[in-house]
Design a protein around this nucleic acid. Structure first.
Lengths: 226, 226
DNA sequence: TTTAAAAAATGATTTTTATCATACAAATCG
DNA sequence: CGATTTGTATGATAAAAATCATTTTTTAAA
């Protein structure tokens, strides 16, 4: 069983404030899971009673809208914690977490986290800052949805995927999303997403090879996204 | 100078966890302001270095989008705290706060709030819960923007205004927003907003008398908003 | 009170986006 | 391996929404 001490999640999340003893205690009560691509870590409406540490892999956080489409609210990668919000609010999960690639996650029960809260001020502060960051992102994202065109949002999203998740050796976006998922991030119909990708391709701004998307003209995409 | 102890903000915000002594200390270092309708409490990009307690009145929290339109991200009413997020993140304000009616607000400096954080665990927890609530609202709002039509969003927004801010004696919505502001909440062009309001009016779902909007058929609006 | 300015309303038109239909490609399965 | 399913692509069309123009109403100011 891992010791948490060297875990990537410790370096990038609120957990960095934990002491050695606290880490050992956490290592003791955590549960490790392997999640296969396409499987869910938790579903909207579920009571999780703890947080999940993403050790490896990327997942989408989605919400089912009234019209039956899955909106991707955010992507979470290794180093992040999932389910903090609902744990703190004492509510069922507002979003589902579904693996976009094979993942390694650990579950830490709420009781444990709550102890850290009470003992370790820096830990609380760190978690608060993370959630505040999420709130800012959500507000900004909301304004994009409300004010930008689908084309602008596609350009913006491609740049985000590039900058946040990087590229493969051949320069293509590392994160592999289906067209439907990409449309779900942008908030549009799958066909519209495909059509605009084709247009970007024809303009030479991106290259489409199979499922792979390669950004060819970052500046142009920046200009488009405003 | 007010004592904070009886203040409405204390009943509805994280401040309810403060002890008598803490409240006295806060009363001592706070500054009270009267804000006229249309004036701003703070602007996007400004460093506020504290939080504002809304004693009376309602304000809009807006973000200027790239196309020059003000998107209203949320409305804040008496009892709420403003500027918590940027204070905790140690960042400039992400949103502007502009009074929709005459307001009474108090400013409490960051140093004071931070002391409460370190001393009073319940206070931290309360504030965290508030921010978590905001995050959930923002995520839900984002999904609405991405997946719902303008008509659905208008119906939803009218119901929200009704349920959250109530009505005047004559049944009209208490909150007075210009058509431009309403459009800014929904995320649409002012003309589209006006056109749909007219349509709702013709259908008998709302009544328009001057600036006043009265909801006539709540169920129908609920059905429209899905 | 009259006038000027701002806000609201409506029409005409264009642009954007969704939807439906179908074709094609690629992955999956027996 | 071929057959079937799933994902991607594209065309045609309809619906939704933005934009521009103009009129009417309301508000504020002189």
């Amino acid at each position: 069983m891992g010791k948490c001490e060297q875990c990537i999640v410790r370096q990038f999340s609120a957990l960095k404030a934990l002491s050695k003893e606290e880490l050992l205690r956490m290592a003791d009560c955590k549960t490790s899971y392997t999640i296969k691509k396409g499987e869910s870590i938790f579903e909207e409406g579920e009571t999780t009673n703890g947080v999940f540490c993403v050790k490896d892999g990327v997942c989408k956080m989605t919400k089912l809208s009234a019209n039956g489409k899955d909106q991707i609210v955010k992507l979470a990668k290794s180093g992040e914690l999932l389910g903090q919000r609902s744990m703190i609010s004492d509510e069922p999960a507002n979003l589902s977490a579904v693996a976009l690639e094979d993942m390694e996650v650990c579950f830490v029960p709420k009781s444990e986290i709550m102890q850290f809260f009470n003992q370790n001020n820096q830990f609380s502060m760190n978690m608060m800052k993370t959630i505040c960051g999420d709130l800012k992102d959500a507000d900004d994202h909301m304004v994009s949805m409300a004010q930008k065109s689908v084309k602008e949002r596609l350009a913006e999203t491609l740049l985000y995927l590039h900058d946040s998740f990087g590229t493969n050796a051949d320069g293509s976006l590392r994160i592999q999303l289906s067209r439907e998922e990409l449309a779900g991030m942008i908030g549009t119909a799958t066909e519209s997403c495909i059509r605009l990708l084709s247009e970007f391709n024809k303009n030479g701004w991106v290259d489409l090879t199979g499922k792979k998307i390669t950004i060819k003209n970052k500046n142009q995409l920046k200009k488009i996204s405003e």
